[in-house]
Each structure stands twice: as C-alpha cells, then as structure tokens.
C-alpha cells in the first residue's frame, strides 16, 4: 500500500509517495539519499539512526515513515549551515569524540536536543542523554568531554 506523505526535512518540505511499511530510516536513506543517518541494528537498540523529530531525538528505524507525516525531521545533514559547522560538530572533532564516526551523527543530534532543553547539563545528565546511543570506539570518555566543553 502506498501513501503520500509530507515531511519537513532539514527545513525543506518534501512530498513523497512511499510504501506504508517503510521506516523513516529507509525513507531518509533510500528515498531522500540522506545517508548520514546510519543503520546499526534496525531495531531500536543502538541510536545510529537517531534523527530529531520535532526537535526530539528518536530512533528512526523504529518509526514508520507514515507516522512522521507532516512533521519536522532534522538529520545530521541539516546541522552545518552555509558551509559553517555547528559548534557541536566542531567540539566533537576537536575533543576526539569521533573515531570511526558511525555513531557520530546520532550522538551529535542527541547532544543538540539535550543542549536545547538543558544548556547546563551535569555529567550525569549528559550520560543519561546519550544512554540510547552506543559507541564501540571511544568508550564515551571523549564524547562526554566534547559535550561538557559546550557547557558554559
């Protein structure tokens, strides 16, 4: 069964006809070519597929695309504006928070939402915020440091 949906992806309106059984992750990667959103497990257990749905981080592999109809979706491609990196991206790179980089899009988006809701998180709150995102490379230390460096 097909359905027409409207997504606001990184500020741009996209009207698409999709199969109802497609996940948001599949629509982003396959129909829109936004491969910055990664698939690590495809069942809600790793956070590689994190996008912001109306500003909130969600696992896009665990969400039917039809359920995002009419909503705003931010992917990693939407962060750097006009060739200008987002400060979070900058901090992640400087602090060594990126190794293989496969978890990084998700981590960075979660950080964005965290800092918007709570510009002054404690280390414990930072750890809680990224507790759905698995990183095998960094042992999280430099990721936590990178986020802390963004706290005034």
């Amino acid at each position: 069964m097909k359905k027409k949906i409207r997504l606001i992806v990184n500020g741009e309106e996209k009207v698409l006809t999709i199969d109802v059984q497609q996940t948001l992750l599949e629509v982003l990667r396959e129909d829109l070519g936004l491969t910055g959103t990664k698939k690590g497990c495809n069942q809600g257990e790793c956070g590689a597929c994190t996008v912001l749905l109306e500003g909130k981080p969600v696992s896009s592999c665990s969400l039917l695309a039809v359920k995002a109809d009419g909503k705003a979706v931010t992917t990693i491609e939407g962060l750097a504006k006009g060739g200008q990196l987002h400060p979070i991206q900058q901090a992640f790179n400087e602090k060594g928070a990126i190794q293989c980089g496969f978890c990084s899009p998700g981590m960075i988006l979660v950080t964005k939402s965290l800092l918007e809701q709570n510009p002054n998180p404690t280390t414990a709150e930072i750890k809680e915020a990224i507790a759905g995102n698995i990183c095998r490379c960094t042992g999280y230390v430099q990721i936590i440091e990178a986020i802390r460096s963004l706290v005034p």
Partner: peptide, 9 residues
C-alpha cells in the same frame, strides 16, 4: 523504560 530514543515514541 528502554532508552531516551524510544521514550518519545
């Protein structure tokens, strides 16, 4: 429940 990425869904 679960993880922060699931709780808003």
């Amino acid at each position: 429940v679960g993880s922060p990425l699931l709780r808003s869904l």
